[in-house]
Simulated scan of single mutants.
Amino acid sequence: MNKLLSFPRPSAPLRGADLPLLISLNVLLEECNVTRAAARLHVSQPALSAQLSRLRVLFGDPLLVPAESGRGLAPSPFALKLHRRLQPALAALTTALRPKNEDFEPAHAARTFNVVANSTGAAAVLPGLTRHVQAYGNRQLRLTLSEPEESELACRLERGDVDLCFGAACMLPPGLLSMELMTTPYVLVQRKGHARGCAAVTLDEYASLDHVNVSRDSSLHGALDEQLYRLGHSRHTAMAVRDFSAVGAIVAAGDLVCTVPAFLAASMPPSVDLAELAFPFLSYTLCMAWHPGADDDPGLAWLRAQVLASTQGSPKASAGSRTG
């Protein structure tokens, strides 16, 4: 590996004209790749390379160095420390430049809100949220939905690429502000005319059935099995799927059963029945989360209020459940 050039530390503070370079530096240190960073900043790669050269002179440090793995770049030790100080400073600047809450007018504003949710969160939130947003009669307010990618979600929220995410509390990245939207018991989904009947399911009977497990990685073993073990039982899982979207069709076609959050009952086809669990079991808690840097964004404050109103009837109902 080539020996890195020595960079003397700067003796003068940054000039005002150099401050925009800090935004480029933040993105460069997040991506550790000039090509990807240039795409995010909407500048050419040569232009960003020139900015990186200027930053190296300003800070007297290489900032990005060859990674120890031999593939790609990594922040220098100095850059890591600088990045930790730079991120809150840029977030504070962004907050200072935002308009006040009263400046957001949902009846006239033009904005696209980007939310992330798996099929469970989408089924629980989007129908009611859509009704509330459309009630304002503003066709310039729009929503986009994307699937969660855990490795990227925290960064996307921090960058503002994602406004809100919905999911189980245990699935949320650390460091976010969050609020519980609903907690619901699990119920059993089975085909109509199932041999076991429609009575509530006892623990012994539950353990004797053939199950479909829902897991984001299509695992045959999940949190429900852990809870069963704690109750001294286990179950036989015949199939695993990534989400609940196909569960109704699967169980309607045979004798498999599936355990789902009760709020999904409305989305199940008429060819299935629901049965309560007649033993203490897990409940499903759905949360809404957002980045602390967006906490006072007037548009997102309004959107969060619409989510709460559509899921609980009043934003004040969950004011005490906010965590960070």
Rank of each mutant, 00 (worst) to 15 (best):
A124R: 09
S146Y: 01
D204T: 11
E158R: 14
Q190L: 10
L228R: 09
L209E: 08
R111G: 00
R196L: 13
N138K: 05
A123P: 02
A123N: 03
E149G: 02
G121V: 14
D161A: 15
E102L: 14
A107P: 00
S119R: 15
S234N: 09
A223V: 06
A207P: 08
G137P: 10
A109I: 06
L228C: 09
T202K: 08
D225L: 02
G137A: 02
C165V: 15
Q134V: 08
L177C: 13
V189R: 10
D163W: 12
E158M: 12
A223Y: 00
R230H: 13
N118R: 13
E226C: 12
G193K: 03
A117P: 10
A168M: 08
G222S: 02
G222Q: 05
V187T: 12
A109W: 05
L157Y: 08
Q140V: 01
D204M: 07
S208T: 15
T183Y: 06
A199V: 12
S219A: 02
E152Y: 12
E205Q: 15
R216K: 03
R191N: 12
A199Q: 15
A168K: 09
E226P: 00
V187Q: 09
A124S: 14
L176P: 09
G193I: 07
L141F: 06
S119V: 15
T202Q: 13
L231Q: 03
L224H: 09
L143N: 04
F113I: 14
Y186R: 14
L172G: 05
E105W: 07
G160T: 13
A124F: 11
P127K: 11
S146D: 10
A195Y: 11
N138C: 01
E147I: 10
L126H: 06
A200K: 09
L177V: 07
M179I: 02
L143I: 11
R216V: 08
G160P: 06
T144N: 03
A223S: 11
L141Q: 02
M171A: 15
R142G: 02
S215R: 10
R230L: 08
R142Y: 00
A207I: 04
V201W: 10
H211I: 10
L188P: 00
A154E: 07
H132F: 10
A199M: 08
G175D: 05
L209Y: 07
L129V: 03
N138A: 00
L203P: 04
N138F: 00
H221C: 02
L220E: 03
D225W: 00
V115R: 05
A109V: 06
Q227G: 03
R191W: 06
A117Q: 10
Y229V: 13
R142H: 04
S151R: 15
E158A: 15
C165H: 12
L188T: 11
D217T: 00
Y186A: 04
H194Q: 03
L203Q: 08
L228T: 04
L153M: 09
R142W: 04
S215L: 02
L153Y: 10
P174L: 05
L153R: 07
R191D: 03
M179T: 06
N213R: 14
N213G: 06
P185H: 02
V133Y: 00
D103I: 07
A123K: 15
D210A: 15
A110S: 14
L203C: 06
A168V: 03
V214N: 04
T183S: 11
D204C: 09
G232H: 07
R142E: 01
S215E: 03
